[in-house]
Design a protein around this nucleic acid. Structure first.
Lengths: 221, 221, 221, 221
DNA sequence: TATGAATGAGCGTTCATTCAT
DNA sequence: GATGAATGAACGCTCATTCAT
């Protein structure tokens, strides 16, 4: 339903701007051009609306990141592309990322709905996938033995989040990009050439890809 | 005043558990075994109470981390000790760290109060200090040129935060320790021996120390 | 809106009985058979409700008294009719008069609201209009030179207020009427015949009237 | 007890400035340089304090006005001196007069204490005394038959109150004095010479007085 | 006796939720 | 369905009153 989607978009904007408790249902109603009553036809209560919004919006992002796992390239490249994609997604979805951070890193803002738990599980799954890439890359000796895969995945994701969310306040000389992140994380480990040259985009550019299907490279959804 | 301190501790527990808006003054009063009125003898309003609590608690932590800057050792060692100390402080202050995260990473939970801004400035200052260590260490060639110092500081701090806050859910094989973090961050860059050997503590090694023994580093915390 | 009017009437009764600070919003809600929330749909806060009530109620009274100024009769008659009308209005609006007195004669019951100031200005205007009648009547020699017009107006209004508000407790032999007031105020100054004969009503005697009859003055009040 | 008197004076100042509900016990305590507890040693509660203050202060004023009744002069002179004295007392006690007005003319600001009733009785008594002067003066033909004595007394008192309390806002050309009031009230009735010449003071200046006793003329208490 | 910190009932106000239209 | 006025529980906060010291 488009109506539902429209409400969730309005809600995202407002919640990201002010936080759950400082946004009233009538405010969401007004901004989404529905009546208060209509909101309650779509969602049984305010927390359900918030939950639906945050789960659906983060769901989209997770699915995007998940696609990287199925790229047709080696595991180290996938790790790099994962970072590239994460940076892209952050830039396109700052609002939802801020909500995501406040739910996964901070306190449970909303007691009755266990949103934080669900979001932490999503994050956990994302990182587990990334960890399997690390495990596999180390096994295939694309990477030296760097440590426990889940720890590596968490650390890499943590660098991304820290650099991206600090960007605004910290006065970095250049905007944060995937290359910067990967150079720091992998120190003097040689990266795949397309990453090293700073030409990285999140979409795979592998010969086979082109011949196989055009749809596999369209990831902007 | 001990009464005041007692209120702040109760408030910390409650706020860390539920967040600002889900804790009522009468709840704080009940848990701290004061009356509502007494709370208002110590703090002019709820936000002031929250602000006092979060600023005093984070102030203590910042001061602890700040001490590392004045240790009598080389800059790379200071960076390592900084991480060691941060891990220790996190373990001793999980509640306040969670509040800190929700204020610095998420949306402003409290619109009127400038708490988030103040906390972001604190974090910024902490990271700037760490960045000066990176700058100095790279200049003295204790570290190879790794990138922009503030970016490095943010990344290292981000790894700490990510690993520490994920620890609970992520099922790491071992608890997160400074050594793990540093090994990941510095990859195959050689670290100071006491760090490399996993004997690291956050305590300073002062000059007199050298004459005594390297291993008997006084652990004054 | 009738609902609004109904709230204001309830509020008038309660405020006139107990004063601003001794009436709670929930009391007004209960007596007016609305919920507390509904009160806040009509008025942004308690003071706004009080202000709306007192300004609208006194506004009606002032407008009534103001009409006398435009009657088609000589200035001395207007002064007399003004008193007649004031007595009538007092009897119909004792509650609002009591609130009016407590705001204009006493201390400001409500510090934040500028209600007292507004009411004092209303009273001032009313008396200034009456003063112009005195000035004009003395100039036209309908009245001997009795003194400063504004002083006379204030004195006459003061007699009205004192006699009317004391009536209940003072055990006067007869209820206070305009004739009594005017006889005292104007002592042995001859008054217009319809006043002197105690047939006075507040209604204007318009030109057409004269051709019909002096006694059959149309009582449109 | 001087302590008690000091508290009442502070209370008068504060209550006259802000009204009963906007003055807190701790404010009275601070301004009177007592502790809150001490206030409760003198008065069982806030209303009792207010009641004691207003009754004692108005009591003093009433006693002053009452003395005029026993002056050694004719009844018309007494009426005139009464007005003279009232004007003097108003000027010396504006604060208490404002409270007096708000209690006698307006709504009962304080529900539990029946202060208004008591004050109205005081006012009633004052006016009854004045009424006896009118009755007597008319009987002795010092005054023409002007009307019911209590009505006359109320009217004269009402003129005093209205002119005095309006003085501040109304921009009269001259400050209100007894002579102005009496000239208005008695219109072209001849007044005693010392009043007519504007030399009036509240103290009696009658030959017999001087010879009888000095104390009868000292009314400044 | 004097103190003033502590108390907690009660207020003004908000806003998620309902339901008559 | 769609609406938005109406509801009332629950909050932050005040301050008259108490009582341990």
């Amino acid at each position: 339903m488009q109506r539902r989607e429209s409400i969730l978009n309005t809600a995202l904007t407002l919640f990201a701007e002010k936080g759950f408790h400082k946004v009233s249902m009538s405010e969401i109603a007004k901004d989404s051009e529905f009546s208060v009553g209509s909101l309650y036809n779509f969602f049984p209560n305010k927390e359900a609306l918030y939950k639906a919004m945050i789960l659906e919006k983060t769901g989209g992002i997770c699915r995007q990141l998940d696609k990287v796992m199925r790229y047709d390239c080696d595991d180290l490249s996938k790790i790099c592309r994962w970072v590239v994609r994460k940076v892209e997604l952050y830039r396109e979805n700052i609002g939802i990322f801020r909500l995501f951070f406040s739910e996964t890193m901070g306190i449970n803002a909303i007691v009755r709905a266990q949103i934080s738990t669900i979001l932490k599980e999503k994050q956990q799954k994302l990182r587990e996938d990334l960890a399997t890439l690390f495990a596999s890359a180390m096994e295939k000796e694309l990477l030296p033995p760097m440590g426990e895969p889940m720890v590596l995945a968490t650390a890499l994701d943590g660098i991304c989040n820290a650099l991206l969310s600090a960007e605004e306040e910290s006065g970095f000389q250049n905007p944060v990009d995937a290359h910067t992140i990967l150079k720091i994380f992998f120190a003097n480990i040689p990266l795949p050439p397309e990453i090293r040259q700073g030409k990285a985009s999140s979409s795979p550019r592998i010969r086979a890809d082109r011949t196989r299907s055009a749809s596999a490279s369209s990831l902007t959804g």
